[in-house]
Design a protein around this nucleic acid. Sequence first.
DNA 1: GTGGGCCCGTAC
DNA 2: GACGTACGGGCCCACG
Length: 921
Amino acid sequence: MSKLILIDGSSYLYRAFHALPPLSNAQGEPTGALFGVVNMLRATLKAKPEYLAFVSDAPGPTFRDELYDKYKAQRPPMPDDLRAQVDPMLAIVGALGFPILRVSGVEADDVIGTLAEQAHAQGIEVVISTGDKDLAQLVRPGVSLVNTMTNTTMDSAGVMEKFGVRPDQIIDYLTLVGDTVDNVPGVPKCGPKTAAKWLAEYGSLDGVIANADKVGGKIGESLRDALPQLPLSRQLVTIKLDVPLEQTVTDLTLRDKHVEQLRELFTRYEFKAALKDLEANDAPVGAHPVRDQTPAEHAAIPAPDRAQGALLHQGFDLSAPGSYELVTTQAQLDDWLQRLSNAELIAFDTETTSIDSMMADIVGLSLSVEPGKACYIPLTHDYPGVPAQLARDHVLAALKPIFEDPNKAKLGQHAKYDINILSHYGIALQGLKHDSMLESYVWNATATRHDMDSLARKYLGYETVKYEEVAGKGAKQISFSQVDLDTACRYAAEDADITLRLHYALWPLLQTEPTLRSVYENIEIPLVPVLAGMEQRGVLIDVNILRLQSQQLGKRMLELQQQAWKAAGHDFNLDSPKQLQAVLFDELGLPAKLKTPTGQPSTNEEALEAIADDHPLPRLILDYRGLAKLRSTYTEKLAEIVNPRTGRVHTSYHQGAVATGRVSSSDPNLQNIPVRTEEGRRIRQAFIAPEGWVVMAADYSQIELRIMAHLSGDEGLMRAFREGGDVHRATAAEVFGLKPEEVSTNQRRAAKAINFGLMYGMSAFGLARQLGVDRGEASDYMARYFARYPGVHAFMEATREQAHRDGYVETIFGRRLYLENLKARNQALRAGAERAAVNAPMQGSAADIIKRAMISVAAWLKERDDAHMLMQVHDELVFEVRKDAVEEVRAAVVARMSGAAELRVPLLVEAGVGANWDEAH
DNA sequence: GTGGGCCCGTAC
DNA sequence: GACGTACGGGCCCACG
């Protein structure tokens, strides 16, 4: 398909002007916005579209000013520094060979709309490059938006996701919301959410107007008051599609560029990279458009997305509506059992009374073996007049042999949840072959959330029935068991159906990338039952210890509160940063040395430490905060969340939450229990083992640093690990040119800070702050470090390079992390993406390794009843072990963890045992 | 009441 | 602007 790229020049000029620092050339002419636009254009040229145009506003009034004299009346005039860049911009754009369109009497949007309409009618794909949300009204299949500032694209699904309305509703949406900048009156008090809600309810603006008297409350009055002006607003926000133009779409090809003019312009405005490109490649670009992308350009597209057009599986359109069967008779059940026994792959899903799998009871079950067809078997729906359902235990008994057959392949969406549910009914699911959530996660962890609604939208272009639509939300939410059977069937059977469709969309993708497929098949899928087992088991908690600690903390907090109030001269809420800020900086007049990201004077630990010598209050607050955190987040929360049935806490592990491949934990988060301070560590004393058992904790020593040694192949760093000993001390000895025994505490501390900082992409500035030395000294440390460990430096450079070349970086096992902001104009965003790129291979490889270890250890534990794996804390596994088995288990765990990867340095594992988690370290 | 942004702090 | 990845509590405001 041919492609037309339409560049919204006005939008880019404004955005580049505000986003970029106010650069200027040697003559003092402003160049910042120009620079941004030129770089964007060069990137556009690299995509080599057949047709392209640069569309800009022409000076003078437009038809909208005639319609409405206040239109854009509140807009400040264009800043002089920006105005000065308009003509040079047009000169460069023209010299690059872009067709430029400026049409009087209309805005750039209208020209873009008209061209998009024409191109679309001719079957030409249209990409509109803009930062302006109003253009979303032009989106439809074959017409999409791209924002090169943020590197995001928006198709129909993207519009739905962002605005909550279809592209064809955008005009009505903008009309309702209005635009204060352009002075377009909307409905006062109606924001994006309300507009989307009304449009969902009444379909269109006309629908909303017709039903205006049905809207209650203040906002209803507001709507009725605004009715007379809405038609005008609609006219103002509607982009024209029929502007008379001299050119047609096929005229809009790239002209030969004017090398001489460009050389002059680039030199004058000091665009060195552009100039270099120009000299390197003197031949006219684009005279013969090339349609094929180079491999590097192809790979640079961050998220492979095949959701465009119909996606077929064996002739079935994966975005078509499905047909679903409510199973309430034995004959129907028998029929489905027959289908299951013939099926190659069974998609299943459970419906329950709670999202907490430990608390949930099963309500029904859905199955699908063929896309578009699924059933729902209600089991325990319970409301007045509910029709007869098959008996729960009877159905589960009939399904048990299938669920427990390891040779019958099963598929789920977030199957860990359903495995946990089934386990409550004595079904130990075997043969989990696929999980659509994990397929999506491995394919591209950051392209989307991995819940079914998001996946269906992205990969199938299909809108699912939402849980809230069938069960309500908030206080009005009802249990799924009270949902009527037909509605439940529509929702639940769809879940199984869509799971299967997602698999047929995603699995072919994974098969094209053997390393991703391997991560999925050999790591993520086998990990599912392991995590399910850990959640089910839970970890035993001594609630009395926690209660006692809560009391003690509370008492000390009260004392500190009294002292703080005295120091402040009056009562205030110590938990409120806002009130604290007023007391410290306004009333007491202490210096506000740090600011929060939003510009407020910060009251964080660093800020308080900085003024702790000037007044007693900061220290009191610091102490109070430490205790408050421990009490609210840990001692009270943990005691609260202990399951009364088991006496244990059953966390949830999330396999699709972390971009680098780590698992996360929540409800409660067991991965941030304090350990660094004595005070905090006491909380770990409440993590205990049953009578006759002990807690065993096994952790990898310096795993990420070892991975850095492995990946970089740096001789010095590898030697440090091979020799054993203290790696930070060894580093300090290298950096400061000493023998290890001569290294001072401070030198070791500096070396440790560098070792860790490097893995996070820290700069000299950051290191200086961390160490409390000046920036020059920090730079000096880093220079010496890189001189001693040149392989590390080369590795980091190579990682950044790979990220820029491919758009992603990889772990040792081939897991990929795509980086979204590497090409961002915004320097901070880009730098952040580069740091993430450097960190991801190490963090991600460590995550892969411990996942492999967990699978291996779980397989070994499977046949035993004297030890259970309970927790994973990124580089640590925690077990409960029967006392008589401690040595055997310790040896096996250490061996399996150490053997989880073959690195160029040893993978050291340390294991400790104790009566509780604190003692096990 | 609830949802969400902000600030802050815990872990690896 | 400056150190990567998470989760979560309390405050506070907008919204219903």
